[in-house]
Design a protein around this nucleic acid. Structure first.
Ligand SMILES: [Mn+2]
Ligand SMILES: [Mn+2]
Ligand SMILES: [Zn+2]
Ligand SMILES: [Zn+2]
Lengths: 138, 138
DNA sequence: ATGTAGATTATAATGATTCTAAACTAGTGT
DNA sequence: ACACTAGTTTAGAATCATTATAATCTACAT
């Protein structure tokens, strides 16, 4: 019923031991259809209130950062109040709803291809990301 | 020789008293041709090391935040390590040089107009900003 | 000149993140 | 099955950026 084998493999392959805590975190983060955007504090809240699992805050910090280092998560900076992590590690664009502070993924074809006309000598483009702030109309 | 009258007026109009400290900060921030991107800590360093003026850190925080509230500065979030303020308060795009952590403004015509095809019901677009990460080529 | 709201500052408090080091555990080998 | 060890978790302490406090100072209106 709880099939952790995918996550166990994912962790093993990347050189991380599949511990009870890491598997719980994997299930929460990666066992879903849509992208999940979260802060570490929200993660802690979910484990405490919704799932009633006690994983120490230190472990949440450690795990999220090692997942980021392994490329399972991406960090997104959209404002100074909050640091978001994103289960969608591809290059992609976002809506940020400024009324709710919610991040929403944009699909490739939701945005026309961005063309940058300026080049800096000795530099090359690494990534291009668009942040579209939205707010309640009317 | 140091013509503060513009800044005195700017501050008065916005309801801020033109104090010695605020005028020093204005001169540093706004008396330049190119956009200036900075962190509050960098600002403190400049006053201490380059200009030999002692403005307390509390005043720097207060002033930068009130300038932001008055619309003289804009806060830019590009990574979790550092919070940048920007003397260019218009909607504009940036290069971020990941090797130096330097922000560089893109002009309107450096980037083709962005077209967002997705709409969320009850929401409208407030701003669109592109972050182009660049790195050393070769 | 005086009065006062606003501003500056040293210092303390806060709070998010990181560090420490002791206890625990997954995986290996016997 | 048992023991060993490197890796992991954890409570609590340390750190550090930012914000709050409250005493002093100042711009400016009267
Ligand atoms: Mn701030
Ligand atoms: Mn981080
Ligand atoms: Zn995303
Ligand atoms: Zn800028």
């Amino acid at each position: 019923m709880d099939d952790n084998s995918i996550f166990i493999e994912k962790l093993r392959v990347s050189g991380l031991r599949p511990t009870k805590q890491r598997l719980e975190i994997c299930k929460l983060l990666f066992d879903r259809k849509k992208t999940f955007h979260f802060s570490i504090n929200e993660l802690a809240e979910i484990f405490k209130k919704e799932r009633k699992k006690k994983i120490s805050l230190a472990t949440l910090y450690n795990t999220v950062h090692s997942f980021k280092k392994k490329g399972f998560l991406k960090e997104i900076s959209v404002n100074s109040e909050k640091s978001y992590f994103d289960t969608n590690t591809s290059n992609h664009h976002h809506f940020l709803d400024v009324n709710t502070n919610e991040l929403i993924d944009l699909k490739k074809d939701d945005v026309d291809k961005i063309r940058i006309k300026k080049i800096l000598p000795g530099k090359k483009i690494k990534s291009i990301e668009v942040l579209v702030k939205i707010e309640n109309s009317n």
